[in-house]
Simulated assay, not measured.
Amino acid sequence: MPFINIKTPEAALSTAQKTEIGHRLTELIVEYFSEAVRPHTMVLIEEVRDGGYFRADELFVLPEAYRAE
């Protein structure tokens, strides 16, 4: 079973964007492994709360300009 796990800052993606990512990644996996894997492919998009991780040794908070509308 192909499993793709994406972690993204909370509120960085809209529901429509997450849906598109799920569809496109599933299509990519099917291209490589065949149509037989489609029903077994899982795409998990995890949203990490602001202040929930560090980047470049600093606490990361998503800038307002990058938040989904």
Rank of each mutant, 00 (worst) to 15 (best):
A56H: 08
E58L: 11
D57E: 15
D50S: 07
E46L: 11
A36H: 10
P63Q: 10
A11M: 03
E10C: 05
I45Q: 11
D50W: 03
F54G: 15
Y53S: 12
L13C: 08
A12R: 14
A65V: 14
L59Y: 00
G22S: 13
A56D: 10
F54K: 08
M42Q: 03
E20H: 12
M1A: 03
F33H: 07
G22M: 06
R49A: 15
N5P: 00
E69D: 02
F60G: 00
S34Q: 06
A12H: 01
G22F: 06
V43K: 02
A11K: 11
T41N: 09
A68G: 02
E58W: 00
I6F: 09
V61D: 04
E47V: 12
T15L: 15
E58Y: 04
L25F: 06
S14R: 09
S34P: 02
I29C: 11
F54T: 15
L44N: 15
A65S: 14
P39Y: 04
L25K: 05
G22T: 11
P9T: 10
A65W: 03
M42K: 11
E27M: 04
I45D: 06
F3E: 07
E27G: 04
F33G: 01
E31A: 03
E64D: 14
L62V: 13
S14I: 02
R49N: 13
E20R: 15
I21Y: 08
N5A: 09
R24I: 05
H40R: 13
V37Q: 08
A11T: 09
I45C: 03
E35T: 10
P63C: 10
F60K: 11
A11W: 00
G52H: 05
T26R: 11
E35M: 05
R38H: 01
Y53M: 15
E35Y: 01
V61P: 00
D50R: 04
V61M: 10
A56C: 06
L59M: 13
T8N: 10
R24S: 04
E47L: 14
E31C: 03
M42W: 10
Q17Y: 06
P63L: 11
L28Q: 03
M42I: 07
T41D: 08
R24C: 11
V43F: 05
R49K: 15
A36L: 14
E35H: 07
L44Q: 11
S14D: 05
A68C: 09
N5H: 12
E46V: 12
I21M: 13
H40P: 00
T15M: 01
A12W: 07
I29Q: 09
F60C: 05
L13D: 00
R55A: 13
V61T: 07
E20Y: 04
L25Y: 05
E64K: 13
G22L: 14
D57C: 08
P39S: 02
K7E: 14
I29M: 15
E46Q: 13
R55D: 08
T8M: 13
L44T: 07
E10T: 05
F3Y: 14
V48D: 07
I4K: 01
L44A: 12
E58D: 09
I4A: 08
A36T: 12
L13P: 06
A65Q: 12
I29P: 02
